[in-house]
């Protein structure tokens, strides 16, 4: 039985206990998948799982209130968001059923677009897409193009430590055994630059921000929604003025509010319509948290996150000389 069929069978079996199961379905074209909300057995047939299933579906878990029982299909990275939400009591274990999957990596459609553009082809004209021998095979303008996954895979997948869902009630397929170490080499390389160079980089990037809040809406841990401090008038931390300071301030609030919570799923960056490398900002904080507290968010639902944990004397920050 294929992994997809195994997953479908599991959902069919568990559906009677649940109000809805969130998975992925076919999107508006052959390269896009879209969130699928399964409420009946008939919907299960529409379920898809392949490397184009990029969305972190746990984002939807906090939108149902605490009365409903919800199933969610997760890859390794997505499952860490579920763990984080559980840890922060934003969802409750008995109200959530996790369908875990192994994942070898998802495609970055930006990379696909650029790879096709390099061959003078337009991603919008892709008529069919499939996967064979580690290649993404697309039919575009009458040609069949093979793009090696290694070239079009999302950056986060190349350094993934958690290919398998870290938490699950059902698990389809075989767990993947290898895991990359993730040494934060990308952040370390960025840190090599001078303060002025880094400031100039971010100034250029942030200029493009249109404050559409897509990054925030895609983030599974941004749970304030209508009361987001970034657009609230009471308290009015950030004005609605369209200036670099406000854009920068909003993004810094977003990043610092995620310090020690962000699982680096990269949904903010994927959702950004103007390609601001937001994950770099989040990973910088992730690196700091790892170095200071030896902590990776979203790995243990019972862990007490370091920034919510009051210790008179931190183990790694010796302020008092005790």
């Amino acid at each position: 039985m294929s992994l997809q069929d195994e997953l479908k069978a599991q959902i069919v079996k568990r559906l009677p206990e649940l109000d809805v199961v969130i998975g992925w379905g076919q999107g508006y074209d052959s390269l896009h998948r879209t969130p699928l909300f399964i409420t009946s057995e008939a919907d299960v047939d529409k379920l898809v799982f392949d490397p184009l299933c990029v969305h972190n579906l746990s984002t939807y878990l906090t939108r149902y209130g605490s009365a409903k029982r919800i199933g969610v299909v997760v890859k390794g990275c997505d499952s860490r968001s579920v763990v984080e939400l559980l840890q922060e009591k934003l969802i409750h274990r008995d109200k959530v059923m996790v369908f875990g999957l192994p994942c070898e990596g998802v495609a970055d459609l930006g990379k696909v677009k650029r790879a096709l553009a390099a061959k003078d082809l337009d991603m919008g004209r892709v008529r069919a897409a499939s996967f064979a021998d580690g290649d993404l095979v697309v039919t575009v303008s009458g040609q069949e193009i093979r793009l090696p996954m290694a070239e079009v895979q999302a950056d986060k997948c190349g350094r993934c430590r958690y290919h398998n869902a870290v938490i699950h009630d059902e698990f389809a397929g075989q767990p993947i055994t290898e895991a990359a170490p993730d040494t934060y080499a990308d952040v370390a390389a960025f840190e090599e630059q001078t303060l002025e160079e880094r400031m100039e980089f971010w100034r250029e990037q942030m200029e493009r921000c249109v404050r559409c809040y897509a990054c925030r809406n895609a983030c599974p841990l941004c749970v304030c929604r209508d009361y987001c401090i970034g657009q609230s008038r009471e308290p009015n931390w950030v004005s609605q003025r369209d200036g670099l300071e406000e854009k920068f301030f909003f993004q810094m609030i977003h990043a610092t509010h995620l310090a020690g919570r962000c699982t680096e799923c990269g949904e903010c960056e994927r959702a950004c319509p103007v390609d601001i490398p937001l994950l770099l900002l989040k990973r910088k904080l992730g690196k700091e948290i790892l170095e200071l507290f030896d902590y990776r968010a979203g790995t243990d639902p019972d862990a007490k996150p370091p920034l919510l944990n009051f210790k008179v004397q931190e183990d790694t920050i010796n302020e008092r000389g005790w």
Binding site: G65, E88, K89, L90, V223, L308
Partner: peptide, 28 residues
């Protein structure tokens, strides 16, 4: 109350144990 999402992070960090959980219309 309308802003509170019931995550109770405030209660975790409160050094005095001054914050407790309550239920308002079924939500924490």
């Amino acid at each position: 109350l309308k802003r509170c999402v019931g995550c109770m992070k405030c209660a975790i960090t409160c050094p005095f144990g001054a914050i407790k959980e309550t239920e308002v219309r079924g939500e924490i």
